[in-house]
Design a protein around this nucleic acid. Structure first.
Lengths: 84, 84
DNA sequence: TCACATTTGTACGTATGTATC
DNA sequence: AGATACATACGTACAAATGTG
């Protein structure tokens, strides 16, 4: 089970790789709307990257409108907007 | 001439204050489409903040579609999109 | 209310890679 | 080869909000 698939030497930046994994997980329903994804700290441990890097990945998804951050609580999956 | 107007103690984050100043300058035409804004280093010196903070401000505008970064050259003002 | 841990948000510091000039 | 500038990545500190006890 080596499914975690981050390649630090590949051409794709690590933060984008993590963002892609999270994006897929959200779209797949692993984290339904209203649920929080793992904290930046947890993601950093899981993918063996710095917390700032994990955070950058998450912020990319916030930027895409998939997530919403709530200070002191977590990053929550938003309702799909204008997608049937 | 104290026009530079960054308040590090105010409720608005410094990077947002700088982003707002740059956004206004662009909209005002100080930096017309195709032109580059000052480098992150220069902005940091100008506003007396860290380079990372200046960069964060600039990236916010990239995100808004106002700027486009070109490695080795600078951050360029984009053509207005869908604005008559 | 207070103390503590967790988590996001902001800010500064630094190093390396890549591209341009 | 060197200077400049953006892109990525790690490290650290503090503030604000939240949750638990």
């Amino acid at each position: 089970m080596v499914a975690v698939t981050i390649d630090p030497e590949g051409p794709v930046p690590v933060y984008r790789q993590i963002a892609a994994l999270l994006r897929d997980a959200i779209r797949r329903g692993d984290y339904p709307p209203g649920r929080a994804i793992p904290s930046a700290k947890r993601l950093a441990q899981q993918y063996d990257v710095a917390e700032v890097t994990a955070r950058k990945a998450v912020l990319a998804l916030v930027d895409e409108g998939l997530l919403e951050g709530v200070t002191g609580r977590g990053m929550f999956v938003k309702q799909p907007q204008g997608d049937g």
